[in-house]
């Protein structure tokens, strides 16, 4: 049996989770104030994921950059790889919030989407 301590990052409460594990399986979790803590701990210990946000170049917009984010959380170890794709991406205004900027990025089953609308500069 071994134990792990994790800080839950689902919400700002940041519960400290005391986790007991046996054979890489969670036996008990203490310290979580809600059920999401359990889901987080399971995910974090098996396949940690993170949301990613960044920007892409945009032509003809009111700003030179368009903020984007991953449509779902990405595997934690894929972030750098995905950033390389994002950094090479360029779009043209206008863009609407939620528009897909990169579909199925790096074949991870997650899209990179626009996180704001940007009108064309007149």
């Amino acid at each position: 049996m071994n134990s792990e301590i994790l800080v839950c990052i689902i919400c700002p409460k940041a519960c400290i989770l005391n986790i007991e594990m046996e054979n890489e399986k969670i036996i008990s979790i203490l310290g979580n104030k809600c059920k999401r803590g359990v889901d987080y701990a399971e995910k974090e210990l098996t396949n940690p994921e993170r949301a990613l946000s960044s920007t892409v170049l945009i032509k003809g917009g009111v700003l030179p950059l368009l903020p984007v984010r991953s449509s779902k959380a990405l595997p934690k170890d894929s972030l750098i790889k995905v950033m390389e794709v994002i950094d090479k991406t360029e779009v043209v205004a206008p863009v609407k919030i939620g528009d897909i900027i990169v579909k199925n990025v790096s074949n991870l089953g997650v899209d990179i989407i626009a996180s704001r609308s940007m009108r064309k500069v007149i």
């Binding site: 919400c11 946000s53 960044s54 903020p67 984010r69 996180s115």
Partner: peptide, 24 residues
Amino acid sequence: NQCIHSGFGLGYFGEDLTGPEYSE
């Protein structure tokens, strides 16, 4: 608008939004 990271809206919308999404 410059806070492009997520973490906004969990309390108000029950969703994890980026700054620009929240303001939009």
